[in-house]
Design a protein around this nucleic acid. Sequence first.
DNA 1: CCGCGAAAGTTGAAGCAACAACTTGATTCA
DNA 2: TGAATCAAGTTGTTGCTTCAACTTTCGCGG
Lengths: 168, 168
Amino acid sequence: MNDTPWLDRHQMAAWVRFVAVLELLPGVLDSQLRRDSGMTHFEYFVMAVLSETPGGTLRMAELAAATNSTLSRLSHVVQRLEGRGFVERVPCPENGRVTNARLTADGRAKMRAAAPGHVASVRRHVVDVLTPEQTEQLAAISEAILQSIDPSGPMAAGYRRYDVPPGG
Amino acid sequence: MNDTPWLDRHQMAAWVRFVAVLELLPGVLDSQLRRDSGMTHFEYFVMAVLSETPGGTLRMAELAAATNSTLSRLSHVVQRLEGRGFVERVPCPENGRVTNARLTADGRAKMRAAAPGHVASVRRHVVDVLTPEQTEQLAAISEAILQSIDPSGPMAAGYRRYDVPPGG
DNA sequence: CCGCGAAAGTTGAAGCAACAACTTGATTCA
DNA sequence: TGAATCAAGTTGTTGCTTCAACTTTCGCGG
């Protein structure tokens, strides 16, 4: 199955720490948002992507790709967000099988209110604890992992938008 | 709340990629283990920690710390693992409120069967896609994030065991 | 030695995610 | 044009996680 099965000490040290981050960080992000804004990190992410889109509108499939999620998961979440009045679903007139998700005014207001606290949390736990070099390293490392997970991936569009132009 | 609210382009590029990893990697690890061995990554992790402990036994509270989880979550999981015969719960004789979790022979066999595939998956998606320098960087970055999440943390014991001795 | 608070676990309910099945609408191709 | 196939979404179920409440046990001060 693999010629070099186990991990050496360096790899192990990195992996156990990384697993701990994988396990703990989502919970930290979730609690801050849940406590301060009554929403999940994933809900925030969905609305954030919509809010950065011209017209605040995106097809479900594109929104799913941009948020690294499945259509099923997104469908459930958008349903809940619609129930709370933050998003509305508009069937596309010229293509009967697509649904457009659109951020409502309430949704936009909600985001304006939630964003500062969330960004502060991201800074506090990730961005501000890394040096500029480490930030670049994290980007490169994440990129490498994503490529192995999602080769020539549909998700790529989701984060490539935030590429730093060469020489930036 | 914060003097420098938003993220610059470099920070943003790193963050969106990292969020994608946070969102996708756990699912990848889970599916491999579920498909090939019928268990979740967290179940694997719990049993892995037990299997590396002398006697295969650990108190619930210590096991929770070592696996970055809450006592509640662990209790549910151990209950399920006990039902499948991989772990057994033994009340501690000299301290009436502690429960010891112990890996059974079946559990150990299960781990022996599951480990190679899981390690291969970890290699394929993380370890082998990074250079040795990036592996060190990931360890340092994870360490920094963990410190901000879990200052002077009880979890620390969980991964410090895998420290690389100086000059190693 | 008794009462009180904290520690260690467990349990039940509620919410979210994963998976599979299903519906409906577009495309292709004969 | 009509069947087959595929794409886009939705829905229901099942399982795991979280959260809060609760039980039991230990330690400590009066």
